[in-house]
């Protein structure tokens, strides 16, 4: 079931070695996680709600420090990284969230440009990239729209463009299809796959097993705080499908309750 792959030729972006995470110092959210993400990898991160998918993602985009073990990003042990180095590392990682997390007072263009602006890049250097990204995600006509005027799917595509503008080595998407309709969800997923084909490593945390099955990508599965790597889902039996959809419904409820 667990597959071993040899990727010696591609550089290691993320390396978890026996990483554990505990928020209260007593109960462990994640235990003994071992995982390697290389340049060009595409991984789905699945698991029941509360299994620690978001916690795992938060550690990779440097919002959460591991409690134990060793996490290496781009060859740097992040536990030994001084605080002023964190922004440089975050700029190599693009993140997309279920709840979009756009800045409401900025237009679509300004939201996408934000990663460049915080780096002090001059607007005329990134303006064309931002416009091209807006076109690529199909929002070329919504340049000056404020987030409140955009639909969920449009917001998520703006968020995706924002994650891409600084040409990151790794894209993380935490339930990117959670707040968009199924057709738009599939479209966003296809954008992520296309991006991966162009060379960017992608990790997508999702409970949408229908999409996972359709994309035929390797799967990281979290259960009871432990992580395991699996090959693509081929087909699922009606029983598993029922289980998956009830699990998805449970996730939906907890997401709404949160």
């Amino acid at each position: 079931m667990v597959i071993a792959q040899s990727h010696k030729q591609r550089s290691v972006l993320v390396n978890f070695e026996n990483v554990g995470l505990s928020y209260d110092g007593v109960s462990e959210t994640l235990r003994d996680v071992n995982m390697v993400i290389r340049d060009g990898d595409f991984r789905f991160l699945t698991g029941p709600s509360g299994a620690g998918k978001t916690s795992l993602m938060r550690m990779i985009y440097l919002a959460q420090k591991p409690s134990s073990g060793r996490l290496t990003l781009f060859g740097e042990n992040i536990n030994q990284l001084p605080r002023d180095q964190l922004p440089l590392m975050r700029r190599r990682i693009g993140v997309v969230f279920q709840e979009f997390r756009l800045l409401e007072h900025l237009t679509a263009f300004e939201n996408i440009a934000l990663p460049m602006r915080v780096q002090g890049v001059n607007q005329n250097e990134y303006a064309q990239d931002v416009t091209e990204l807006l076109t690529w995600v199909g929002l070329g006509d919504r340049v000056n729209a404020l987030p409140e005027t955009l639909s969920g799917g449009e917001k998520q595509r703006v968020a995706l463009a924002r994650a891409l503008v600084s040409k990151p080595d790794l894209i993380l998407a935490d339930e990117p299809t959670g707040n968009v309709d199924p057709i738009m969800g599939e479209r966003i997923m296809r954008l992520l796959v296309e991006l991966n084909r162009l060379g960017t490593a992608v990790i997508v945390a999702t409970h949408d097993l229908t999409l996972v099955r359709r994309m035929k990508k390797n799967i990281l599965r979290l259960k009871d705080g432990r992580l395991s790597l699996h090959g693509p889902l081929k087909d699922i039996s009606p029983a598993t499908r029922a289980e998956a959809s009830s699990r998805a419904a449970g996730d939906e409820r907890s997401a709404l309750g949160a």
């Binding site: 002023d84 700029r91 997390r101 934000l114």
Partner: peptide, 16 residues
């Protein structure tokens, strides 16, 4: 806080 989290997320330094 939400805005500052997003700024950090997209790579803003504390100085920025």
């Amino acid at each position: 806080k939400e805005i500052i989290d997003v700024l950090h997320l997209v790579g803003a330094s504390d100085e920025f």
